[in-house]
């Protein structure tokens, strides 16, 4: 197994149907990646404190639901840091702002991958929609495969995707 120190951050609220996509994916990955140097965080929202984890790793995978896009369709992107931020406060950070913060504050930013899916229903108390449930399984498998096979490594995978 060829695995570099990395970080997985799953974002969402598991009480709100499909919005829990990232959170529950992270919880599942935490069990599967127990014996690897990968740190997995399940969180309701991104926080400035997560920067302290980001700055210490070579790569980070964010997993999050998106209000835009087709429900259940898994999208894999390599986001870019957004430096010209309209944000004045840290109540709602997104991946691009986190990357900018990390670069500004610590002069480093790990290679970054974002796995996301559109949602069908994020009302409180709703279960996962079938499409998002499939996307969650797919996302977890993809990350486990990337880390366990390690060839190409996660960084190389992100590099390749960025070139595409």
């Amino acid at each position: 197994m060829k695995t570099s120190a990395g970080l997985i951050i799953g974002i969402g609220n598991p009480l709100r149907g499909d919005d829990g996509f990232g959170y529950l994916a992270a919880e599942s990955l935490a069990k599967k990646l127990k014996n690897t140097p990968v740190k997995v965080v399940a969180t309701h929202q991104l926080l400035p404190e997560h920067l302290d984890l980001m700055r210490k790793v070579a790569w980070v995978v964010f997993i999050d639901a998106s209000a835009a896009g087709e429900a259940g369709k898994l999208t894999i992107t390599t986001p870019r840091a957004l430096f010209e931020s309209p944000l004045a406060f840290s109540h709602s950070l997104d991946v691009t702002h986190m990357m900018a913060w990390c670069k500004s504050l610590y002069r480093v930013c790990p290679k970054t991958l974002l796995l996301s899916t559109g949602i069908a229903d994020d009302r409180v108390g709703m279960p996962f929609s079938p499409g998002v449930r499939r996307a969650l399984t797919k996302a977890v498998s993809l990350v486990v495969k990337l880390i366990n096979v390690g060839n190409p490594s996660v960084e190389a995978y992100i590099d390749n995707l960025s070139r595409d």
Partner: peptide
Amino acid sequence: PASRNIFGLMKDHAQLVQDGIQLRKIGQ
């Protein structure tokens, strides 16, 4: 006001912002 926020602090007071993040993280 456009830069009088935590982002604006990063430019000249990065250590302070890092300290704030670290202290809050320890408490959490």
